[in-house]
Each structure stands twice: as C-alpha cells, then as structure tokens.
Design a protein around this nucleic acid. Structure first.
Length: 573
DNA sequence: CTAGGGTTAG
C-alpha cells in the first residue's frame, strides 16, 4: 500500500484504480479512518458504500483519538441508526475512551460526556459484551475514573473475576486513584500486585512525588532498579527525576540527570529538572539548565516556559520574567497561554508591583479566569492592598461564587475595617454556598510510614508528648525573642485556620513529632497541603538553629529548606 | 479473518 494514509483522496483514488476497494471489503476500513479525520461527510459517504462493522470501528477509533473526540460518538449514533452493521466488542473501547477524554476535560460538555459514557455502558451490557472482554472492562474503569466516579470504577474492578484481572486493569485502577489524588491508595494497591510494568511504575513514582515521601520514593526506586526486568524508558526516567525533585532530594535528581545519556532526555526530562530546581529554590540553576537545554537543540514547549517563569517568580527576577514572556513568540514560536500570563501576574504580584499586575490582567488577549485573578488576590493579601484586593475578590466571585479564598479575604477586610455587619453577611453567604476551607494538613514520614497531622489535631497516640514538645519549643523561642505573628488580618484560605490557635498549625505538630521521634541530626521532612504561614516559617527557622536540625518543608507552592536559622527561600515566597 | 484497554510534567 502506498504511503497515503494521511491523504484520504489519494488513497481513495488508488483503491478505486487498483480495484482493491471492490475485491476486498476490508480495504475500506483504513480509508474510512483517514477520511473521518479529513471530513466527516466524506467518511459517511464511504461508509454508506461499505457499511461493515470493521470500517465503522476503524473510523470511530480514528475519531476518538483525534482532536474532536465527540465526533466518534456521533459516528456511533449514525452507525446505530443508518447502518445494518452492528457494534461489536471492538467498537466500545475507543468510544469509552472518547467519553473519558471529554469527561476529564473542564469543558462545559464534560457532564454530558460522562452521561454518554454511562449510556454506552448500558448499551454494551445489553449486547452481552461486558463480561467477556477485558479491553472493555479496562476502558469502562478508566471512563468512570475520568468522570469522577471512583466507586463505580472500583466496582468494575471488583466485579471482574480475579483470573480476568490482567495488568492493564490493575494499572487502570492505579491511575484512577492517582487521578483523584488518593496517593496512599496507590501505594497500598501496588503492594498487593504480583507483577508490574512501566505503566505501573509511572503510577507508583507519581504517587510518591505527590506525597513527597522520600523513604517510600527511595524504596520505589530500589524496586525499579532490582525487581523490574523491563527497560527504563525516557518517561520512567523523567518520572523518577520528578519524584526526587518533589521529595526535595535535589542531589539525587541532579546526579541521576547527569548520568542519563543525552539521547534518553526529551523535552519533558529537561522540563521536570527546570521546574524541580525552581521548586527547591535553585532558580539560577534552573535558568542555567534552560540555556543548556537550548544548547542541546531541545525545543522548549509551553510547560517548559511555565517552569522557567516560575523560576523567575521564586527568585524575584521580574525583568527577566517579563522579557521571557514578551519574547516567547519570537524565540520559541510559542503563544503565551493564560497560564503563562498567570505566572507573570504571580511574578509581578509577589514583587509588589500590583498595579502592573492588574494592567497585565486587563491586557491579556483572553477572558481572565479565576486562576489569573487568584494570583493577584494572593499578592494583594501579601502586600496588604485591601482596596485592590476587594475589587479582585469581587471579580473572582462573579466567575466562581464557590471560591473560598475570595470570601475569606472579603471577610478579613471587613473585619479589619470594623464593618461587622458586612462580616456577618459574608459568613451567611458562605454558609448558603456551602463553602468550607480544606483543613490544613502536614505529612511526615518515619521509617517508611506516613503520618498525617491536621491543625489542632489531638488524635495521635503521642499527642501529649507532642504538645509538651510544642510548649518546650515555645519557651525556647520566647527566650530567643521570637513573638508569635498574630496579625489582625491573617485568616486566609491559603494558610491554616486562624480560629485554631496558630501554635497548633499542622506543620508545628509535625515538626514536634519529628523532633521527638528522630535522632539528633536527622533531617525532618514535612509536606503540607497549604502554603506555610509567616509564623510557622519563622518558627521553623529558629527551630532549625536551636535544635540544630535541617527541616525541609514542601508547601503548596515550593520547598523551604531550613538550616542554621535561615531558609532557602530567603524569606521570599 | 483484520483492530482494541492502562502512559510522564505545571
């Protein structure tokens, strides 16, 4: 066959001239697939002439993988209504995958796609295709995961007979938990598995990266190195680097990166290194690596540029960041997306250039979204500009009435101004909208076991000791002249609840727990779900000096490496 | 008879 798969007309002409289209009914299948990507009416005309299940399936599969997956579902509908050929077990996996792709996107049709997926489940069930086909089961599981229905996804797994649970089905379940941020579940499930391949390991490494659990990460790496017989792909190497970076082990990530041959590094590999260095506060190294990457003729992509901009943000390199944003189209043939503008708003905002950040938002060639305004809101809070902040909060609530951060900000501004009636109104609105803050949590790992603390938590068996330790720390701190940072306006969604005393923030509980249970000199590593607050930040600095400990805190945005009384972020975060 | 599921980063 000539190499015309991408050009349906040429393929069509060839098949007609050679007579193959009439001699061999299956010859229409690749033609229908190619035609469906060029024009759906064209594909339909071919399918009308050659209405086999095989041809429909080929076209559906091509559409499901293409840029407009919903067309696969349209074609399925016309297969049902206009054709005498019936769907079979090969028809459904691409259709379910198309629904999953749509349901996972944040487009307005996500809910409709999920519903279409459930309808497909019903229709394949009616045809008796559910239980005998392992491909359909894996696709179904992934569909329910993408639609956010984890119990249904789990049920697909549980209802499969154990001897039918093949590796892709296990992997689907792992990735289902991963996509819903159930990282501990991923680890638990992995430990019950008998075999693993590189897809399994990708899920495992990603879960470790999210948890920031370094002991577990090292265990996963050792498992990969000793137990796995499959080759380490570029993707796996990238996931491994990302994992070490997100666990704060920059050393290991860097030495692995340097020992990886250049031909095994792609744009993703370089990007995770740049992002990881920025995350850990090594912004200049991140920018050097970016230069290095270009020297190796690797074209940066859109994500690389967000990593580069975030490096500029963490280092406060305002002019460099602005220059990079401006030159993106010229230097890299990349049009800035709303995310790049978001990074730059963050960059300007953190540097205190609020007016310039606002001007940038007004100038973006997109409709400003919640994330963009949200970056400015954080900056307004940071630099105590309540007037602009109030305007920004209103903009956010217009776009998303559920945005807890904006409500809380307003409430604080009104409280600071003594407008208690307005505070009351905000509280009532929040209740009506059923908005609640996510609880602050911190995670520490001890001998490979992950311990989680919530603010004001008393549930840990060592709770008495922990609070006694906090007292001791408090006394030491006041001897050192430290005063708790109790500002009037500090209650914020990004930090922990000020209604719980700041001395009981989860990271303080975690550090006390770490001091009690680890030997002198051991590094204490904490991962928290929100941003670290000012008081905790200064407490960590003093603790690192007084108790002579290295403390590594990963917060929502970045790492803080505390050592001998100072932090790697140089108090800029 | 042909074909198909699970896949890294911010």
């Amino acid at each position: 066959m000539p190499a015309t798969a991408t050009c349906p007309k040429a393929l069509h002409a060839h098949l007609l001239r050679s007579g193959a289209l009439f001699a061999d009914p299956s010859a229409a299948a690749p033609l229908a697939a190619a035609a469906s990507l060029a024009s759906l009416p064209y594909a339909l005309s071919i399918l009308r002439a050659h209405p086999t299940t095989f041809s429909y399936n080929s076209a559906i599969r091509a559409l499901a993988r293409g840029p407009r997956p919903h067309l696969a579902i349209s074609l399925y509908r016309s297969m049902l209504s206009h054709s005498r050929s019936h769907p079979n077990n090969y028809t459904y996996p691409p259709l379910l995958a198309a629904c999953a792709r749509l349901a996972d996107s944040d487009s307005s049709s996500a809910a409709a796609a999920a519903a279409a997926g459930v309808a497909l489940h019903a229709s394949l069930f009616r045809r008796g295709l559910e239980s005998p086909d392992r491909f359909i089961r894996a696709s179904l599981l992934s569909l329910y995961a993408a639609a956010g229905d984890l119990p249904a996804a789990r049920q697909v797994f549980d209802l499969s007979p154990p001897n039918h649970r093949d590796l892709p089905l296990w992997n689907s379940l792992l990735h289902a938990y991963l996509s819903r941020a159930h990282y501990v579940q991923v680890l638990r499930l992995f430990r019950t598995m008998r075999t693993a391949d590189h897809v399994t390991l990708l899920a495992l490494l990603s879960a470790c990266a999210h948890l920031g659990a370094l002991h577990t990460a090292r265990w996963a790496h050792a498992y990969l190195a000793t137990t796995c017989s499959f080759p380490i792909t570029t993707n796996l190497a990238t996931a491994l680097l990302n994992m070490y970076m997100r666990c704060g082990d920059v050393q290991t990530a860097c030495s692995l990166f340097h020992s990886t041959p250049t031909r095994h590094k792609d744009v993703h590999t370089w990007t995770v290194m740049i992002a990881g260095l920025a995350l850990n506060g090594f912004s200049t190294d991140a920018l050097h690596l970016f230069t290095h990457m270009k020297d190796h003729n690797i074209q940066p992509d859109s994500v690389t540029l967000t990593a580069v901009l975030s490096a500029c943000t963490h280092a406060g390199m305002v002019d460099e960041g602005k220059r990079i944003l401006r030159r993106m189209p010229l230097d890299y043939h990349l049009q800035p997306t709303i995310e790049h503008y978001g990074c730059t708003v963050d960059l300007l905002g953190r540097a205190g250039l609020l007016e310039e950040a606002l001007a940038l938002i007004r100038a973006v060639p997109f409709k400003a979204d919640v994330a963009l305004w949200g970056a400015l809101l954080v900056a307004c809070r940071c630099h105590r500009n309540f007037e602009m902040g109030q305007m920004v909060a209103m903009e956010i609530l217009r776009l998303d009435p559920q945005h807890a951060g904006a409500w809380v900000f307003l409430s604080n501004v009104y409280a600071a101004a003594g407008k208690w009636d307005l505070v009351q109104e905000v509280r009532i609105s929040m209740k009506q909208h059923r908005i609640h803050k996510p609880p602050g949590s911190s995670v520490v790992e001890l001998d490979g076991v992950v311990y989680e603390f919530l603010s004001g938590d008393h549930s840990h068996p060592q709770s008495d000791q922990i609070y006694a330790m906090l007292d001791e720390i408090g006394k030491t701190l006041s001897l050192k002249g430290h005063k708790p940072a109790t500002k009037l306006v500090t209650f914020d969604i990004d930090e922990e609840d000020k209604e719980v005393c700041i001395s009981q923030h989860s990271e303080k509980l975690a550090v006390a727990f770490g001091l009690i249970n680890t030997r002198r000199g051991a590094v204490i590593r904490i991962v928290k779900n929100l941003r670290i607050c000012e008081d905790c930040h200064s407490v960590m600095k003093v603790v690192s000096e007084v108790y002579d400990r290295v403390i590594v805190v990963r917060d929502r945005n970045r790492f803080h490496h505390f050592k001998s009384g100072s932090c790697s972020c140089l108090d800029y975060w």
